[in-house]
Design a protein around this nucleic acid. Sequence first.
DNA 1: CGCTCTATGCGTATCACATACGCAGTTAGG
DNA 2: CCTAACTGCGTATGTGATACGCATAGAGCG
Lengths: 233, 233
Amino acid sequence: MEIPRTLKVLWGLEERRNRGPQPALTLDRIVATAIEIADHDGLAALSMARLAERLGSAPMSLYRHVASKDELLVFMQDAAPGEPPTLPPGWRVGLGTWARGLQAVFHRHPWILHASAGRPPLEPGQLAWLDRGLSAFDGTPLTSHERLQAVMATLYYVRGEAQIMAVLLTGEADVTEDAYGALIGSLVTADRFPALAAAIADGVFAPEAEDVTFETGLSRLFDGIELLMSARN
Amino acid sequence: MEIPRTLKVLWGLEERRNRGPQPALTLDRIVATAIEIADHDGLAALSMARLAERLGSAPMSLYRHVASKDELLVFMQDAAPGEPPTLPPGWRVGLGTWARGLQAVFHRHPWILHASAGRPPLEPGQLAWLDRGLSAFDGTPLTSHERLQAVMATLYYVRGEAQIMAVLLTGEADVTEDAYGALIGSLVTADRFPALAAAIADGVFAPEAEDVTFETGLSRLFDGIELLMSARN
DNA sequence: CGCTCTATGCGTATCACATACGCAGTTAGG
DNA sequence: CCTAACTGCGTATGTGATACGCATAGAGCG
């Protein structure tokens, strides 16, 4: 079982010698700048050339610190979420805080959703969040397995929501929000999409009160978890 | 309010003249072949050149039928899911069938998760699925708004799960499943990740019975929806 | 029945990008 | 002070998307 280089670096397992010149570039600085670019201009705008330019170095210099662009993306994914929030007591508020913190991360760094995880999490940053999420259930009667499944379900929900909402908020939309209502109304006919047409007729796509979706769905999920828990008491 | 060309094509609103030579290439054939490539070799392997080669034409010929590669991706996203499944009666089984159908789509076409939606759905394929999902609640006491939120929550959950699981199943993993348990056990220490360490000690990452996650979490969510519904009766 | 106009296939060229390879300069430790 | 371990980076190569414009095919009009 060989630990991949990328993980070794992330966990600080790489022995650093100290022979050569003073590094003008650090991995931290590279990753931080790459995150800035991705946050500001999107993942597509992040090229090794642009990154090097922003860092004041030549493109190839980056490869002394990063094996490939893919590895850089892994580093970025691990660093961008930062420390998970401190959770208030009570599993429901606690996990709610965790979920909203995660949502905020995805809103701040939407590109994380495009850079795929690649495997079950083994990066320290990811594990810190997972650990914090699990800690919300300290003192509850759920088994470890149930706790993990509850946290993962929450993660799925938050991630899915963020992904659907991401591009909507990025402003890439080729149709404005106002035009959307009109367009969908004209395209959706009752004979072809009966249930949807009925919903539209009830005004579900009117521009008011739409952004409660996240909280509402989360409450459903938490209600379900609570039901499981109360079956244990 | 101008309807983007892409949507016009998808909804068949484009008037087709019929003057020139018989097209050797059709949009349908292009999209179907592109989906094949993406399914088989991943989205990264889908280049206009490779696609053209598979179609027996020159790369630039594709641009007569598709405005750009991005537009092609939208067409692919719309076509790949196919028809939504017919739902059995009863909202819970119905929505469950819908969710599992959607999960199957994501497993069959994992690249859909990477190609971003771009906006709230306006493609006929997406709307067909949304409509079918909503139809699961026919005859229930939920309001249109609540139905939409329930379906969207389910969508978020399924999509999030698929995205986390996708690359795991693609086999890109740089760490085998067996090695994973050992690795995570050695990296996660109780002082740094107490809750996670406890869970691991309880064997949550042992290789047995892990894939029930999808159904379990979905049951939690459905329980929450059911609670809302029974409050209405 | 030939003319014309629209649509199609595609060759060429350009530009952006990731990255292999190897040289040259730098400095800590012997 | 000298040498090995490192760093920065110039050059070159291959891939990919796509603008532009030419040549051609065939439907409908005269």
